[in-house]
Amino acid sequence: MRLVLMLLALVALAGLALAAGRSWLGPVEVMQALFSGPEGVGRMLWSLRLPRLITGLVAGMCLGAAGLVFQTLLRNPLASPDVIGLTQCAAFGAVAALMAGLPPMAGAWVGAVSAIILLGWLAAHPREGLAPRAVVLQGLGLALLAGAGTEALILRAGDGNASMAMAWLTGTLNGAGWPEVGHALWLVPLLAPLFTARRILDRLELGDDLARSLGLRVGVLRAALGLLAALIAAGAVSLCGPLGFVALAAGPVSRWLARGRPDPFLAALVGAGFVTLADVLARGLAPAALLPTGLYTALIGAPILLVVLRRQMSDKSS
Rank of each mutant, 00 (worst) to 15 (best):
G219D: 15
L243Y: 02
P242R: 03
V136G: 01
A192M: 12
W256T: 01
S213C: 14
L142V: 08
D209H: 11
R217A: 15
R222H: 10
R199F: 09
A249N: 01
V136Y: 00
L137D: 00
A223E: 05
L221V: 11
L204F: 05
A157Y: 02
G147Q: 14
G182V: 04
D159V: 14
L216V: 13
A197E: 06
G182N: 12
L225R: 05
A211E: 06
G235K: 08
T170V: 13
E205Q: 12
L169D: 04
L228F: 05
E151H: 10
L137R: 01
G141E: 07
P193W: 04
L142C: 03
R222S: 06
A230H: 05
R198T: 07
W178K: 14
A224K: 02
L194Y: 03
R156W: 08
R203L: 10
P189S: 11
G175T: 04
G149T: 11
A157H: 03
G139D: 00
V188K: 09
L194P: 02
L190N: 03
L190S: 03
D202T: 11
V181P: 11
G241Y: 00
A234C: 07
A148I: 06
A249H: 00
G251R: 00
A176N: 04
L173R: 08
A176T: 09
N174P: 00
A184E: 10
A233M: 05
V220I: 12
I154G: 13
S163N: 14
A184S: 12
R212I: 05
R212Y: 01
P189G: 13
G182R: 13
L144D: 02
E180D: 13
A192W: 08
E151N: 14
G219H: 09
A234E: 07
C240K: 02
A167G: 13
G147S: 14
V246R: 00
S163T: 15
L137I: 13
V237I: 07
I154D: 09
L214Y: 04
D208P: 04
R255W: 06
L140Y: 01
